[in-house]
Design a protein around this nucleic acid. Sequence first.
DNA 1: ATCCAGGCTCCTG
DNA 2: CAGGAGCATGGA
Length: 314
Amino acid sequence: MSVTEASSTIQRQSTLIVPTAPYDFARTLDYLRTSPAAILERIEGDTYRRAMTIAGQDVLLILRSVGAPKKPRLALDVAGSRVDDHITTATARHIRAIMLLDVDPAPFLATLRGDPVLAKLVRQFAGLRPTAIASPYEALLWAIIGQQINVAFAAKLKRSLVDLCGHSLAIDSTTFGLFPKPATVAALDPAELRARQFSQQKTAYILGVSQAIASGALDLAAVPAMSHDEAIAYLTAHKGIGRWTAEYVLMRGMGAQDSIPAADLGLRAIIGRAYGLGRNATEIEVRAFAEKWAGWRSWAAFYWWYALQMKVAM
DNA sequence: ATCCAGGCTCCTG
DNA sequence: CAGGAGCATGGA
């Protein structure tokens, strides 16, 4: 990983974020602490730290709760070689977007009245809110990496990709990794990924989508403005992006709130158990159950995944 | 050894 | 258009 030494003068700014209530930031930390995909996030005690590129600047975000679930407040510190009001505002906006901090959970909670099974889970993890991956590109690569392999191994692959071609930001003699940019990945020699246990097809998919993004043929920034069906069609036009991946990227990479990767093995297993099927639910069955959560299917999926991650018995 | 893992593509009927 | 085979790679 190449280390760009930030100049000796580090600029810092702070701001306060006021999420909609109820919101329990500790749940987000619990999620990230145990999430295999969260390899660049550093969770220490009650503090979240991670470097991201915001408006073209590499910055370090430091986030901690200064409120309570019924009156949530987050203190955000931004540090980097050039941090001004514009960067700080953009960073806060980005955090609010990926953590859905401006979304009112009340309508979601209301839709659970017809579903005691999910309602129980949502009560158990009160204040939990879906958290997206830091960028749509990172979410897309994580999805492709995770296709048809176990998540522990997927995490290993992600880590080796970051080691291979990610960059980093040094703040006060601590370095924070950043996820590589599409153009960087697009320029890789396939042999470098093959040598790091990426299968031939994974390698081809990863290089292909990265090249498409770098060339502008695939514009992830344009997707949120599309309808759900348009977005799925747009994304799945590229090799290596099937329906599962497209649905995953919408919910985990773009903050879409009504997208559920119904073919997901984990979802099929836990939903099958939770609703007493005695076996895994089929993709069709998951989609049928999900009708009850219409408008909030991403929230439901996130809660199910959270239950899986926390090994909740069903 | 055998089965499985946060699927995808391509080819049938 | 639905369903299934074949695929690639490690891990348990």
